[in-house]
Design a protein around this nucleic acid. Structure first.
Length: 449
RNA sequence: GUGGCCAUGGUGUAGUGGCAACACAGCGGGUUGUGGUCCCGUUAUCACCGGUUCGAAUCCGGUUGGCCACCCCA
């Protein structure tokens, strides 16, 4: 109901802001949780499309597991000693008395699903992919959130090294397709036995150097000796050089397996580096382990892994499968990848350009514009509107900002005449066309016919 | 979990004990139907709670949140 302005009224409009009562305090997002706004969503969309395309092309099938699982799944699967389980899980008891946790990582639930649904009776390997939110109650910092998303692939039920290589390849290739150059850092930690033997040797070695270790490193020695190898402490750098090397502790099969993985990577042209000090935090890893890091001149950027993965032949038994299920997989951290994408492709965040803007004037014009917009859209023309606006001027401003090449204008007069104005926004010229032929006319102008 | 820096409109900032300012964005106008410029209007519980003070955005304490590093990880 259009209102007439009341020229009689005094100009002093502002109705003296009422002595507002204090409203409730504004609600902030929870620590470490964030909104993904439209400007960022275009990067997410591109990454999702590349991830989906690649995984489906390689025969991986989409899976979605519950955000909430029994806490025991992660305690057993990820490892009681790991930081993830010890201090980072969102765990609570439900009203029904179940002990549950928000999913902190994607692999254990997928293995649980594989076992639960008897996928070991399907042709092996079973190949699955996911794109899901994860939750870890860690202190937020650069590239780290309490809710974060991972894209990952898992290949279950087969121990062939070509699959290890395929995982590293897919992680690397997804990034490449999304416009992010990366390098795969890769290592082998062998079987559970060889890894255990190596761990003992490592502890024995560092015990003799205990007096040279920092406080943090002494803790690592007890809690997580493998991590001593990627300690950032300066004094560690030389100690490390003398330390036992994992390669010397691998059994022949593990070594052969690893060599084959590397050969496949060579064949596929994957950019990779051997890193004898690379170990991974989760208990379930065996044999191949890798991380994917961005190529960057900035050392701080280059060290922040975009993803990681490897083989985890021991996981199924930890979860009670009753028989071994060799498997491997990888996951990429979406937020971290998107940060790199923004750097590589700053323009992607800009709003999409539209070809035609439909402007209207008056109630009749608006109704007609409503219909014509839909007609244009249905014909595959990228149209835009601001139907809720009344002033033609405001609408033209919007059309201009969108970079629309053409404007279709319908007012009362045009409705009565059964016409529409087609305006060339660049030239500033316009013509009157039959309203029924607007779509046809626009198509012609856009060279679509 | 430990430590450092920080918090002023939607965004970016100025104000460092005495009237909260500027730019951009948004919305509404510039005489009943046409865009990039221009002009006008409008947009703030100074994160929250408390303390010191005649007086606090400013000083102090706490809380919440952000950024960064460590631990760890994607």
């Amino acid at each position: 109901m259009p209102m007439k302005p009341q020229p009689m009224k005094k100009p002093d409009v502002t109705p003296a802001p009422a002595p507002v009562k204090k409203g409730p305090a504004p609600i902030q997002p929870i620590r470490g949780m964030r909104d993904i706004l439209p400007a960022e969503a275009s990067y997410w969309k591109k990454l999702y499309r590349e991830a989906e395309q690649l995984s489906e092309d390689y025969g991986y099938e989409r899976i979605e597991t519950p955000v909430l699982e029994e806490t025991a799944l992660y305690v057993r699967g990820v490892g009681k000693q790991t930081d993830i389980v010890e201090k980072e899980m969102y765990s609570f008891d439900t009203a029904g008395g179940e002990h549950v946790s928000l999913r902190p990582e994607g692999t254990a639930p997928i293995m649980r699903s594989y076992i639960h649904h008897g996928m070991l009776n399907r042709p092996q390997p079973v190949k699955l992919w996911y794109w899901s939110p994860m939750f870890r109650h860690d202190r937020p910092q650069s590239g780290r959130y309490r809710e974060f998303w991972q894209f990952g692939c898992e290949s279950l039920g087969d121990d062939d090294p070509v699959l290890d290589a395929q995982m590293a390849f897919l992680a690397w290739k997804t990034l490449k397709n999304a416009g992010v150059e990366s390098v795969v850092q890769i290592n082998s930690i062998g079987t559970l036995e060889s890894r255990a033997n190596y761990k003992n040797a490592l502890v024995a070695y560092f015990r003799t150097k205990r007096h040279k270790l920092s406080e943090d490193d002494k803790k690592r020695l007890v809690k997580n000796p493998l991590r001593l190898l990627d300690s950032k402490e300066p004094e560690m750098q030389e100690l490390k050089a003398e330390a036992p090397q994992i390669m010397d502790w691998l059994d022949e099969d593990s070594k052969a397996h690893f060599m084959q993985v590397l050969e496949y990577l060579d064949e596929a042209g994957v950019s990779y580096q051997l890193d004898p000090y690379l170990v991974r935090g989760l208990d379930y890893y065996t044999m191949t382990v890798f991380e994917v890091t961005p190529v960057s001149d900035n050392a701080d950027v280059a060290k922040l892994a975009l993803g990681g993965g490897g083989r985890y032949d021991g996981l199924a038994e930890l979860l009670g499968s009753g028989r071994p299920v060799p498997a491997c997989g990888f996951a990429l951290g979406i937020e971290r990848v998107v940060t790199r994408m923004k750097e590589a492709m700053p323009d992607l965040g800009a709003p999409e350009k539209r070809d035609v803007f439909v402007a209207q004037l008056g109630e009749q014009g608006r109704k007609k514009a409503f219909a014509i917009f839909e007609e244009l859209r249905g014909s595959g023309i990228r149209a835009a509107e601001a139907l809720s606006k009344k002033a033609i001027k405001a609408q033209m401003e919007i059309a201009n900002k969108m970079g629309a090449k053409w404007a279709v204008i319908i007012g009362q007069k045009e409705v009565l005449d059964g016409t529409a104005i087609v305006r060339d926004m660049d030239a500033g010229t316009q013509e009157i066309v039959d309203a029924r032929k607007v779509v046809q006319e626009i198509k012609k102008k856009l060279g679509k016919e």
